[in-house]
Nucleic acid binder design. Structure first.
Length: 510
RNA sequence: GGCCGACUAGCUCAAUGGCAGAGCAGUUGCCUCUUAAGCAAUUGGUUCGGGGUUCAAGUCCCCGGUCGGUCACCA
């Protein structure tokens, strides 16, 4: 049973009164001729077209929106409504509406209600383009008051927000309220949509086919992560929510679909942090006859294209630092980067034991059980990652942490893999894909051995994937990117929660 | 999961261990160019939950919850 606050009870009473008066508080139909921005633009056009000293041609408009502010002055009322495009001021006067209607507006309508208002555009004494209201109608009554923000525009033109909805928990839990009162939040999600649109458009234009592969998978793979598990009752079959799209997309290359991509959700049953959410949006593409160098070039083009389309330029400010996405991005061999930042030359340490000692000398203590690859990964995150602020491709990774990547010719310990780093975190991951079925089978076996102490992260052998590869897979480059992280960069948000409409939150007692 | 911090009216925030407050929102008036409108009056509280110390707890202690930060985990 809903417990209503005193404010809500007052509004519920108003709803009762409205019904008694024969006014439907939730009418079925609404009309609108202009959005707020369109009405203002049409009025400004009319003003410009008018001859000197002559009044502009009358601009009639029917607007819809949510009441965000109201200032009643007896026989006169000013209000602001907000729609998807912005805000516009309404002007209600007893001369046109009669005292009774103006009083009714003030008494029965509240901030948060949706209304429809018709009238003629004019400019107030203070110069604001305003709708002079000749008729209005309630469209939807709000029972609960919005956690309202009030904006004050100071003389210097700055907007000061008063009593804003700021609590990050409440903003995430009640995203609808956050969106309703914080216009910049709506802008963030418009940008996010713009990024996704730009990525899709770029890949479509480059001949890639968008595909959809299973989210429910009998065997998970393509990344080292703990999966969510579920069960199909009728088939009595355990299933996993995918942790990546990789193995399915590469099967399609076997099927002669030469360029494929998928934009969708991955699920990983792991920690939640400012850059991790249990479900997140991933972009993967696979490109026959390309290698990781070609993928690098396509990546910097694709990301800079999205940046240009969404922000209007190649340079952005992220958390106070300027980042420049203009291609070409810096390319840095991982061993060089690690040598520069840590002083350790991994080429001189071919075994885990020797590398561990070298790290210990530097005063750091990684897990003593770690493989050589894991130790290199440790060096990477400990020393190198924080220095990778400008977009950088870090390339050539250790083989034993890259079971799906092809070895570098003449260097069996290294694979052709790169990761794109921006602002100190990983944005994307790509490699020349391993297409040798015998080598691939060997890698699965190696992974199984290395992870025996951690069953959940163990890479299961995917026999069907190997069968596909035995039919012949063209040489190819593959790519994966956390789209949420790109959205964080391009909207200047520190937390992934700010770019997810409904981020994962703990359950609350209701 | 560890550590640190926060949680008080619908919103934003105050309150040496000593009567729980302000602004906005709400309600009732006045007001025909306001824009955080103004003026006058007024309503509104399980101080996150539970336990303890004390003559007295929003404040101190313990347990729990949620959030934030950070570390760990995370190819």
């Amino acid at each position: 049973m809903t417990e209503y606050t005193s404010l809500e009870k007052i509004r519920l009473k108003k709803i009762e009164e409205l019904r008694k008066e024969g006014v439907e508080p939730y009418p079925t139909r609404a009309e609108r001729t202009h959005t707020s921005a369109q009405a203002i633009a049409a009025f400004e056009t009319a003003e410009k077209a008018a001859p000197e000293g002559q009044p502009p041609v009358e601009v009639k408009a029917t607007l819809t929106g949510r009441i965000r502010a109201a200032r009643a002055m007896g026989k006169l009322t000013f209000a602001h409504i907000e729609d998807g495009d912005g805000r516009i001021q309404l002007f209600l006067r007893m001369n046109e509406l009669g005292q009774e209607r103006v009083d009714w507006f003030n008494k029965m309508l509240d901030i948060g209600d949706f209304i429809q208002a018709s009238g003629v555009m004019f400019r107030t004494h203070t110069g604001e383009a305003t709708l002079h209201v000749h008729d209005f109608k309630l469209l939807a009554k709000a029972v609960s008051p919005l956690p309202a923000a009030k904006d004050e525009v100071t003389e210097s033109g700055e907007t000061v927000r008063h009593a804003a909805l700021e609590d990050p928990e409440l903003r995430a839990r009640q995203r609808y309220a956050d969106l309703a009162v914080n216009p910049e939040v709506r802008e963030t999600f418009r940008k996010r949509a713009g990024i996704i649109h730009a990525l899709r458009e770029f890949l479509d234009d480059h001949g890639f086919l968008e595909v959809e592969t299973p989210i429910l998978q009998p065997i998970y793979g393509g990344a080292a992560a703990k999966p969510f598990t579920t069960h199909h009752n009728q088939l009595k079959q355990d299933l996993f929510l995918r942790i990546s799209f990789e193995l399915y997309l590469k099967r399609l290359l076997v099927g002669n679909l030469e360029r494929v991509y998928e934009l969708g959700r991955d699920f990983r049953n792991e920690g939640v942090s400012f850059k991790h959410n249990p479900e997140f949006t991933q972009l993967e593409f696979y490109w026959a006859y390309a290698d990781y160098l070609k993928v690098m070039e396509l990546t910097e083009q694709m990301v800079s294209d999205a940046c240009l389309k969404v922000t209007g330029g190649m340079k952005i400010i992220y958390q106070g630092r300027e980042l420049d996405f203009t291609p070409p991005w810096r390319r840095l061999a991982m061993c060089d980067g690690i040598l520069e930042t840590s002083g350790i030359d991994i080429a001189k340490h071919p075994t885990a034991k020797s590398l561990f000692k070298a790290i210990a000398v530097k005063g750091k203590t990684p897990n003593p059980q770690a493989t050589r690859g894991k130790l290199i990964d440790f060096l990477l995150s400990e020393f190198l990652e924080p220095t990778l602020v400008q977009p950088t491709f870090l390339y050539d990774y250790p083989r034993d942490i890259s079971p799906l990547a092809k070895s570098k010719p003449g260097d069996p310990l290294t694979v052709e893999r790169f990761e794109g780093y921006v602002a100190g975190f990983e944005l994307c991951n790509a490699f020349t894909e391993l297409n040798d079925p015998l080598d691939q089978e060997q890698r699965f076996i190696e992974m199984g051995r290395d992870y025996t102490d951690d069953e959940e992260e163990k890479h299961p052998m995917d026999e069907d994937y190997l069968r596909a590869m035995r039919y012949g897979m063209p040489p190819c480059g593959g790519f994966g990117m956390g789209v949420d992280r790109l959205a964080m960069l391009l909207t200047d948000k520190h937390s992934i929660r700010e770019v997810l409409l409904f981020p994962h939150l703990r359950e609350t007692e209701e």
